[in-house]
Nucleic acid binder design. Structure first.
Lengths: 178, 178
DNA sequence: CAGCTCATGTAATACGTTACATGATTAC
DNA sequence: GTAATCATGTAACGTATTACATGAGCTG
């Protein structure tokens, strides 16, 4: 149920935005945190408007509708931000594979883990590169966006290190002959 | 589309299991990796059987149906394990909050981050406790289950550390008066 | 005026959760 | 015999993805 809060949050940062504008924001700044498709977004905007969380503040060319956060919407955002306990995502595609990796034998398992580690190392390098090229300004999205960036870096590094560790673990088992 | 692979994986480890058996397995060993509800599971078993990935090898009391992996099912499992690139989950409820944390001012933001850090510290302690109480045997599920456990520990520790770091970052901004 | 971007919406399909519904067998 | 466990299935609803559909306005 958090797509709505992503929308409310964006409308809190940039008052007055159209569905189209918001879609661009999702693509450039929320893509790694909470992706949304165009269909989903327009649907949610309709619902939020009907519930009085946002309202059409102006209409422009080509049927453009500029939405604005209402007091109810802002209240809902703050409530969610501070009072609704965040629930960490539990499904992890990669971990699921690891669970069943015994099915392929230790050599293939070790190769798989090594490969994944290298892949993450590449992705971390890309992220560092991206970070270097971003020009952070001083608004809220930038300050807190930097925190999110650091999270991404630490997350990738943690997974890379774990893959390397796990590959070594399996190597140990390989030598044991188990 | 990975629920089916979780089912195939479990049936590869323990040949011959009913929906009910599998449900128990999901609850005790896959709950933090790939949770599934009863509805979902029975639905998927039906589909997998229709597609020839699994088959009813025996029927027991109370309408019990014991499924077994077919060759096609095993092939699909191996294909998924080694050839389908794992896609990391992208949605993160907590990170989304961080993105909009500027809306509540630096003190409340710092308090939020500190609180989340403490919560993770508690959860990590619980996990370590659980780890101590598990009696690992030597089968595949145990060997690779230990890798998954280590992943969980590292993931929680990483997030705890990041929260503590982020809270300090915000404190810095607080003093700046920004 | 042709092609791109802006701009909104709907339909079909899949995946996930909660709740409902039913009944057989076992353990006490 | 009654309560717990075993065992399967369906229905309703919400969320997410992909594809389809349409058209206005700007740029060359």
């Amino acid at each position: 149920m958090s797509l709505r809060h992503a929308v409310l949050g964006l409308l809190a940062e940039l008052p007055r935005a159209s569905g189209y504008d918001l879609l661009k924001m999702f693509e450039i700044s929320l893509d790694n945190v909470w992706p949304a498709t165009q269909s989903q977004l327009y649907g949610e905007l309709g619902k939020l408007a009907k519930e009085g969380m946002i309202e059409v503040a102006a209409e422009g060319a080509r049927g453009r509708k500029e939405y604005e956060l209402t007091d109810a919407g802002r209240a809902e955002l703050l409530h969610w931000l501070l009072e609704v306990p965040p629930k960490p995502a539990r499904r992890d595609d990669t971990l699921l594979r690891v669970f069943f990796l015994g099915q392929v034998g230790p050599e293939a398992a070790r190769d798989f883990l090594t490969k994944q580690g290298k892949e993450l190392d590449r992705r971390l390098a890309d992220l560092l590169d991206l970070e270097g090229r971003i020009k952070w300004d001083d608004d809220n999205l930038a300050v807190y966006g930097r925190l999110a960036m650091e999270y991404g870096k630490r997350f990738m590094a943690m997974r890379r290190d774990w893959y390397e560790w796990a590959a070594k673990e399996i190597e140990g088992h390989e030598r044991d002959g188990s």
